[in-house]
């Protein structure tokens, strides 16, 4: 295999500049090791074979993006950096937004994050370089590429991908209400609720975790978000919150959150408190206990 030099050109289609600023940090700060990929930053899009595109694609950027793409020689690779480029994120549904990007150009690698850590950006570019090599040699892009950079540790406090403790969640929809980028969808099923978090729409702000009354939704420090584009709609956290069946009347009911009970009854064993009867049967039992 002959060595192909990846030539990077960045296009900002309306980002808040977070991804662009962090791209500069990724490119010029040694600790992110981008030089190990042998990439070159080029001044002219015509010389480029690896596009880094940020932003949700504004109406005014669209014709210029097309113009720039037309100047490029195939094959080339597109790495979308930042949640906006993948799904328009927080800016979705605005009159001025024509994205996401993949409406207009085939995207190879998506890097969600708001902004992504430089380590994620570097990983996204590394995957892009791999795809570029395969394209140049006429090979088919695989469905999955293993992580290229090995060091993926972040401080414990880093707000990475959100996750859910199913047993704590009651499907109260607070997270859905405070999420600014509609990354959370809670839907009713026959047995309870499905709670979905779409990492590619998430702006990693932590609002959901902050406002969650039971401590169910929380952030992890996992920032493994540089993925091939076939993962775009499947990089989600799916949780099922199931009804319990009342041991008395056999009706289904939403059990109280262990998180909340733990806060309310600090000195008691919550598991014992959580007798499996529904609120109306409990009311009836209490009434009988007091007045019968």
């Amino acid at each position: 295999m002959s060595e192909i030099i990846p030539k990077v050109f960045r296009i900002n289609t309306g980002s808040c500049n977070g991804c662009d600023v962090e791209f500069v940090a990724t490119a010029f700060v040694d600790k992110f090791h981008i030089e190990s990929l042998g990439v070159e930053l080029v001044e002219d899009v015509k010389d480029s074979n690896l596009l880094v595109i940020t932003g949700p694609l504004t109406a005014k950027s669209e014709p210029f993006l097309k113009k720039y793409l037309n100047q490029m020689k195939k094959p080339f690779v597109v790495v979308g950096v930042g949640t906006c480029s993948v799904s328009c994120g927080i800016f979705r549904d605005s009159y001025a937004i024509n994205g996401p990007l993949d409406k207009f150009v085939e995207v190879d690698v998506n890097v969600a994050g708001c902004p992504p850590r430089p380590q994620s950006i570097a990983e996204g570019i590394a995957k892009g370089v791999k795809v570029l090599n395969q394209k140049m040699h006429g090979e088919v892009t695989p469905k999955k590429i293993d992580t290229i950079f090995q060091d993926f540790s972040a401080p414990q406090t880093f707000r990475g991908k959100m996750a859910l403790h199913e047993g704590m969640c009651t499907g109260c929809r607070t997270c859905e209400t405070v999420c600014p980028s509609t990354a959370i969808k809670i839907s009713k099923t026959d047995d309870g609720f499905t709670h979905n978090i779409w990492h590619n729409s998430c702006c990693y702000c932590g609002n959901c975790a902050y406002f969650c009354p039971t401590g169910a939704i929380h952030s992890t420090n996992n920032f493994d978000t540089a993925k091939l584009s076939n993962h775009k709609y499947t990089d989600i956290n799916i949780a099922h919150i199931e009804y319990e069946t009342c041991t008395k009347c056999q009706e289904k009911f939403m059990p109280p959150s262990r998180g909340l009970l733990g806060k309310a009854y600090v000195h008691d064993d919550v598991n014992k408190l959580n007798a499996k009867i529904c609120p109306s049967c409990r009311k009836e039992a209490n009434f009988k206990r007091m007045y019968a």
Binding site: T58, I90, F91, D93, S94, Y95, I97, P180, C205, N207
Partner: peptide, 25 residues
Amino acid sequence: GFIHRGMESLATKKNFMQNLILTER
């Protein structure tokens, strides 16, 4: 106008808690 995202319009469609984050973006 390349970075115009219509954010003032978005701000009126999001609640006060969501706007804490929208303004940050």
